[in-house]
Structures are given as C-alpha cells and as structure tokens.
Design a protein around this nucleic acid. Structure first.
Length: 853
RNA sequence: GCGGGUGUGGCGGAAUUGGUAGACGCGCGGGAUUCAAAAUCCCGUUUCCUCGGAAGUGUCGGUUCGAGUCCGACCACCCGUACCA
C-alpha cells in the first residue's frame, strides 16, 4: 500500500494556498467579519508544544469560520521585547536585537510548516521601531489625557549586579545570579492610571458573556472593590493622625493593636533614632516585593513604643507595631488589628500576646460563653462588647459606626480598590524607550512628536552591572526640547505588557503610518475569538481592556472591550525522567526495553516521574519540529485536538501521537483504497437505499450537525470522536447493499470538508483524490438536512428505585401510559417487583422510567 | 497566605446540564492475514462475584423517585499573586 506521503503532500498544499492567496484578507465592509487571534509568542527561538496547541486551536476556528462565509482576519506576530533576550546576551555574547531577529526567522519557518492559515503580510514584531514608535506616541497622548503620572515605587535591587531584579529573579530573597541578599529600593517611575477605570473594568465584566466564568471572577477579585471606612487614629503625644482603611469598622471595639507597613513614612520617621527598628525594617526589605513572598513569610512585628488613642473606648490605647504583613500598596499602609475577627490579626496577637476580644457573636451562640481559640470568626452575627453598637447586625453596625465617625470628623465611608496603578517603567535595555527628557529646569519634558520614534541605540554593552542605556556614553545626553539647556533622556523602557496591550489593533492595518487606521479598527475589532493560556487571566487581559479604554479616550478607536470571546487553553504535560544521579533526562535519551523498563544509553535504570508541565528545566520536552518532521503537521494537529478539551491540560504520549498518525492513514485509505467502489461525482441520490445504509446516510447528517455544534462550542475532542464514528460506519458499509456507493461518496466527501479545519492538508488531498479541482479551503461548510436527524425509535432505561433493570425500545414520543405499561411488563421488572406494591412510576418522555416500590 | 480552577476504568476523556455512567480513542488480551515481522482487519476489555447480582465518578456527609451533575466539610494537584511572558 502506498502510505500517505506526508512531507510532499503538506508542502504541496501549503504552496497551493500561498499561490491562490487563500488567507490574504482585506477590509470589506460588505461582508461579515470574524477576527481570530491567538496570543502572539515571545520569540524564544523554537516553537514548543504549547504553541502548537494554541495555534492549532486558532487555526481550526479561523478555517471553520472562513468556511462558514466570514471574512476572517487571522494574523500572527512577535512579542519581541523582554528579559530573555538580555539573559541570552549575557550568556552568549550576542546582541538582543540579533538574537531576537534570528529567533523570529526560525520560529516563522517552524510555524509555516504547520500549515496555519495566517495572512502573513500582516506579521509584526514589537521590537521594530515601526511598531513601538506608535506606543511612544500613545504614551504621550495618555500623558496629555492625564492618564500618566510619575511617583516613587519599590523595586528589587541586587547590590552586587547593580540592577533591578524581576520577581522571578529573586529566589528565597537572593539574586538568582549573584546570590546576594536582595534589597528593596525606591525609584521614581511612570504609572498608568488604570485605577481611573476600576469601576468600569469591573462592571463591564458582566457583558463579557463569551469569556470563561473563572477569568471574569479572577479579574473581579483582582480589581477587588471594597466598601469600608477611612479612620484617622490619634497618636498619643503626636499631632499627625494615623490614617487607616478598614472594611470592618464594626469591629472597632475589638481592636487591640495597630500595625503599619515597614515602608510606611511613620516607620521611617521613627527608625531615624531607633537602630533596632531600622534593623527590623532592613530585615523586612530583604523579602523582595512579591506578594506571595510577603504573605507566606512568618508574621513579624516590632513594637514602636507609640500608642494610638482608642477612638471609641475612653482611656484605652493601642500599641503601634511595624509589621511585615501590612502592605504599603493597599489602603493607607496601616491597619487596626482586631484579632477575634481576622485570622492574620489573630496569629499576630497570639505571637505577641495581645488581647483577643470577640465583638461579633454568631447567631444562636451565647455571647457569655463565645470565645475565640485558634480560628478567627469572620461570619455574620450580632455585635457584642461594643457599647452603642451592641445588638446590631454586622452591616447595620458598619453604617452606625461610620456615621459616628463622620459626625465627629474622625473618619468617613470609603470605597477602596485592591487594583493598583500600572507601573510601566523598567530599568532594562531590551524594551521600548520611554519618550521623555528630564531637564533640571523644565522637569519631565515629552520628546516632541516629530522626533519619534525614539529608537534604541544598538551600540550598547549588555554585559555590564547596571542599566545599559543609563551607562551608554552619549545616548542619554540631549538638549531639553523646551529650554534648549543640557538634559538627559529617560533611560527606562516600557514594561513589555505595553506592547501586548494594543497589538490586536495594529493587526487591523499593520502597515499604517499611524498606530492603526480607525476605519480598519472599527471594522475588525473587537477580536471575536481570542485564544491563549490561562496564565494571562488577569494581567495581560486586564491591561488590554484598560488600554482599549485609554485609546478610546484619546480618539484612537471607538470600543471599550478588545476581546468579545475568550478561550483559555491548558498546558502540555509529559512524564519526567531522572537518571541514577537524580538529574532530569530528556525523553529522547531514555531507552525503553520491550518489557517497558527504562534505562539510559548505558543500561542504567531510569526513574519515571509523574507527568508535569513541559519545561526546559525538567527536560520533559518533545520538540514539535521533530514530530512534524516524522508524522506531519496534520498528525500533530489531530493529536492536539483529540481526547483533551482545549482548556484542560494535555498529556503528551508517544502512543497518542501514534494513534493520531494511524487515523490520518486510515482516513487516507478511505479514499485511496475504499472498501467499495464510490458512486461518480455528482450522481443523484438513489431512490432505493437499503435500511442499514440509510442509517449511515442519516449518520452523515447527524455528524455534520454534531461537529458544527462541537466546533462552535470548542468541544474539539468530541468533534473528532464524531468523525471517527462516521468513518467507522463508512468502513462498515456493505457493497451488496443498494445505495452504498452513493452513501460512501457522500460520507467521504463530507469527512473531507469536516476535517478541513483540523487536518487541512489531508482534507485537500482527500478532496482532490475524490476528483475535485477546487480547494477545501475555499469550500463552504456543509449543512445537515434536519429531516434526516431523527430516529423513529428511542431506547428508554427502566429503573426500579433508581437502579437500571432493563431497557425498552419504543416509538419516539409514545404516550406515557403505553411507555409505563411496556416498562412494567418487562420480565425482569416483574420479578423485581414480585409481590411488592408499586408506589409510584415516574416517566420522563424519551428518557427513563423509574418504578418506585 | 490570598484569589481561581481541576479530580470519572490501566490511561486521555464522554455523559443532551438532575434521567441507561464509561461515547470516541490509547493500552492490554484473543483471533485473522503473513514464511516471518511491520502494517492492517475482526472480537473482547470498570471492578468484584456464588453468573442471579453487588459495588463504582478524589474523601466524608446531605437533598432527591433518581446525583458524575445540586448543597456542606475535607484532601490532592495546577494557574495567578502586579518586574517571566
């Protein structure tokens, strides 16, 4: 048998699509549009299986929607700025620009081998001035629109490398390369006012009905709107009050201490003449800036010796601590601690032996005996031990106490957000330069727009301690655009989330000499289907939503939400292997004996570990290039779509890819060596079709219906199963049955089109082999004949007390009494009933009968 | 720590959203074909069992005629946690 020749076939059809410009798309207001976008990759150099999955999913949607008649925009580009290029530069002495461009070239070749239906004319790379010049302009527009400001903020500082470290470069409080203790430092940085849109970003989540619920919940919680009170506590012996934000003002009578962040101004003030406190602050500052590190660290406090006057209990005072778990970024950086009703406060109180006084008593519990041991009580209840608040429910007490403070000028009702403004300054080389010039006389002056783009200098020394732009001998020295005196450029670059916050709009008119043409954006946006990893659930997606609003504010476009539909994908996992020395091994270095035992090349035993996310560090990776080289793109694509639903993790297995490969060949044989001669192209449907063959014909229609449904709902694994069922049935057709040659052709042609979005090369090859001169890529999606979808009979389960005891085959929509009678007359049912009384019979039409005895 | 998610045969998963648990595939077992192998095809495959049944969807409990699906508690793993992208 001539095996399906993957290499030749796939190359042939890729050339055909190219030659016929199948996927080049134009702005055409007369046609309905559909914008499919996959999260663009960071050009690390080689595609990995995660990319293969992501782009297979996107390509399926793009080809499916195109077949349905949409004008489909499906572009690809490169998220090309970022830290890995600088790391590579340090390790391999290669310039980030050169490294990045070479990576893009090789990854483009790899992507093209997958047969993806991109309009490659629209490719963009964010590291090119042609792209980033527009975000420099945008930044200046945002500045004019009062959406940008500068303030001091904390960074991780490596005292040995003299650089700012990313959170992932801080390991257990130490620099990943230097191993030195990390310090927190304060730097002046640029911020975008995302909080100005906090309410809108929150309420608009309700309208994103084609987003996964969990992503909306995560964003909801991230924005974290809370209603509470701002309270000014008087500090004994000081004039300036201590401002506190709390969501639980109702627990004020239970307060037993105050705590402020280590970088609170009051802490810094007190530390000036208190070396022990200074030591404590230094110790807190070694923790790095990540929330996870701060929150999981042991709760520590330092008593300042100062006290606040309790605002509602005459004569009582509250000791002020500096505490490592209080975040300066949230609220006012100071809290009052009520140990009975907050777990962290309770842990802290136990550690420092502070009073724990319950003030909320759960309903049904006696306040006299209610006490707190190891768990704080955070539920509802009535207020106790709280003077004039006693007896109130929690919510009523909140209102009452806030009114109390407002009357006395001690506090007020306040809405607070967890969301913080977006710091966009990065002290790095490989990013978009921030178009600002700092002048001693004029302050921060925007680079005049006619001087954009402000390009990155390429003649830098990457391998230095510090920021290469800052250390460049000439680049930063310029005349102030305002007064002409000597000034310096901003040497920070943008956070790389900046580029990915608007690239979807650039794709609409990628060659435009402005950021994007408004007409094109109005036509193509929003993205109808966005596809990418769940890890971007909050940051990238929230920044993009904010950016779209900011761009609208500045007149760039006219919509709020960039992504109408969102699909998240799970990760690719693979077994892990360790050799005798406990080192991770590549799957390709593991030798499998016939009995399944694993060894290395020298015959030493290899330990098999559980399946984990593919990662370079654990070496459990499979190279897509090798897979595509051996099996072809269609097989790889089929594997990505079979079995696991898109949003779940997918286990890579050798047997799985073999199974996909076998099915590709099996489909090919369906046309290459069919089990019976096919009817001629265009033959009319014969009037005489044997019963079993007619069932298969109905199955073709059912499959069209089901697959269409499944593809629309992202149930790609089910769609594959449906197609397999159909091909199984076609293989079972008997050549002796009347109508079989016609049904066979109908079925195989249908399959060719249905697999078009999944295995596009094979689809074309089958279609061509069936005698068609056209391309599947240009063929309309089939529509099922609805009169062929229903069977006349149904099989109904018969239960006794909820347990299945038999089934009945009966005409669809049979009268309930007849169904009941048929069920009760089953022999097995009768024997179970015996002489017991039938108390009730529940009949669910066309589904089930349950006899209760 | 906090926020979000996932958990069904040996394995990946399906189950019309409260109605016959295990579609489809992988693996495995048996058979056919072959000098032999590969490939291919056919049959079987949740577990236990006294062959009549019994148990079974991470664990424990609840609601219901009926629970993988709903409710409560717990366990394990994964994602995010604002400078990885």
């Amino acid at each position: 048998m001539p095996r399906y020749n993957v290499k030749e076939t796939e190359a042939k059809w890729q050339k055909q699509w190219d030659a016929q410009k199948c996927f080049e798309v134009e702005h055409d207001p007369s046609r309905p549009k559909y914008y499919v976008l996959e999260m663009f990759p960071y050009p690390s150099g080689r595609i990995h299986m995660g990319h293969v999955r992501n782009y297979t999913l996107g390509d399926l949607v793009a080809r499916f929607r195109r077949a349905q008649g949409f004008n489909v925009l499906h572009p690809m580009g490169w998220d090309a700025f970022g830290l890995p290029a600088e790391n590579a530069a340090k390790e391999n002495k290669v310039h980030p620009a050169e490294w990045t461009r070479a990576n893009i070239a090789s990854m483009r070749t790899q992507l093209k081998s997958m047969g993806l239906s991109y309009d490659w004319r629209r490719e963009i790379a964010t590291c090119e001035p042609d792209y980033y010049r527009h975000e420099q302009k945008m930044f200046l527009d945002f500045l004019k629109a009062d959406l940008v400001y500068r303030k001091e903020s904390w960074v991780n500082w490596d005292p040995v490398e003299h650089t700012v470290l990313a959170n992932e470069q801080v390991i257990d409080g130490k620099g990943w390369r230097s191993g030195a203790d990390v310090e927190k430092r304060k730097l002046a940085q640029w911020f975008l006012k995302i909080t100005a849109y906090a309410d809108d970003l929150l309420s608009a989540l309700d309208g994103l009905d084609r987003w996964p619920e969990r992503v909306r919940i995560m964003q909801h919680n991230w924005i974290g709107r809370s209603e509470g009170a701002h309270i000014a506590f008087q500090i004994a012996g000081r004039d300036a009050p201590l401002d506190v934000y709390t969501t639980r003002p109702d627990t004020i009578f239970g307060a037993s201490f105050m705590a402020i962040a280590a970088n609170h101004p009051l802490a810094a003030d007190l530390a000036q003449d208190n070396p022990a406190l200074q030591d404590f602050i230094t110790q807190c500052n070694r923790m790095g800036t990540s929330e996870a590190a701060i929150e999981t660290a042991e709760k520590l406090g330092f008593a300042t010796g100062l006290h606040c006057v309790h605002p509602t209990i005459e004569g009582e005072t509250l000791p002020i601590y500096v505490a490592n778990f209080v975040l300066m970024d949230y609220g006012t950086g100071a809290i009052f601690g009520c140990p009975a009703h907050d777990q962290r406060d309770l842990d802290f109180a136990r550690k420092y032996d502070l009073p724990v006084r319950p003030v909320v008593c759960p309903d049904g519990t006696d306040p006299a005996t209610f006490s707190i041991e190891n768990d704080a009580y955070v539920g509802p209840g009535r207020i106790v031990n709280s003077g004039f608040l006693n007896g109130l429910e929690v919510d009523a007490a909140k209102s009452q106490i806030i009114a109390h403070f407002e009357e006395r000028g001690m506090g007020k009702r306040q809405v607070n957000f967890r969301l913080r403004d977006w710091g966009v300054s990065r002290q790095r080389y490989w990013g978009c330069p921030i178009p600002i010039i700092h002048c001693d006389a004029c302050g921060a002056v925007p680079v005049p727009e006619d001087q954009l783009p402000m390009t990155l200098p390429e003649d830098v020394d990457i391998d230095v301690a510090g920021n290469p732009l800052d250390l460049h001998p000439t680049w930063k020295h310029v005349a102030c655009p305002s007064c002409g005196e000597q000034a310096v450029r901003e040497t920070d670059t943008f956070d790389t989330f900046f580029e990915s916050s608007w690239y979807f709009a650039r794709f609409c008119s990628p060659a435009s000499n402005i950021a994007f043409d408004k007409d094109a954006a109005d036509y193509w946006l929003p993205v109808d289907q966005y596809i990418g990893g769940i890890e971007h659930a909050v940051l990238h997606l929230l920044y993009s939503r904010f950016f779209t609003r900011a761009m609208k504010e500045c007149g760039y476009l006219s919509l709020d939400e960039p992504f109408a539909g969102l699909q998240t994908q799970g990760m690719i996992c693979h077994e892990t292997y360790k050799n005798q020395d406990g080192k991770w091994m590549f799957p390709t270095d593991v030798v499998r004996a016939e009995d399944g035992a694993l060894t290395d090349a020298n015959g030493n035993a290899v330990k098999r570990g559980r399946s984990e996310k593919m990662s370079k560090s654990k070496r459990n990776v499979v190279d897509p290039e090798e897979i595509i080289g051996n099996y072809g793109a269609d097989t790889a694509r089929l594997f990505m779509l079979s079995d696991s639903p898109p949003d779940r993790d997918l286990d890579w297995t050798d047997s799985g890819i073999d199974g996909a490969w076998r099915y590709v060949n099996r489909l090919w044989r369906l046309v290459d060596e069919p089990s019976l001669p096919l009817a001629a192209t265009g033959d009319p449907r014969p009037t005489d079709i044997a019963n079993s063959t007619a069932n298969v014909e109905r199955l073709v229609h059912k499959t069209i219906q089901a697959v269409t449904n499944d593809l629309e709902r992202f149930h790609f694994n089910k769609a594959v199963a449906r197609i397999r069922e159909l091909s199984n049935a076609l293989e079972g057709l008997s050549k002796n049955d009347s109508g079989a040659p016609w049904v066979m052709r109908f079925g195989v042609e249908t399959i060719s089109i249905l697999i078009g979005p999944m295995m596009p090369h094979l689809a074309e090859e089958m279609w061509h082999s069936l005698g068609h001169e056209t391309l599947v890529a240009e063929t309309a999606w089939p529509v099922a004949d609805t009169s062929m979808l229903n069977d006349e009979t149904v099989t109904i389960g018969v239960q006794i007390n909820g347990k299945l005891r038999g089934t009945i085959d009966i005409a669809k929509d049979t009268d309930q009494d007849a169904v009941k009678e048929a069920a009760l007359s089953l022999e097995n049912v009768q024997s179970f009933i015996g002489d017991k009384e039938v108390r009730k019979v529940i009949v669910v039409p066309n589904r089930i009968v349950n006899v209760v005895i």
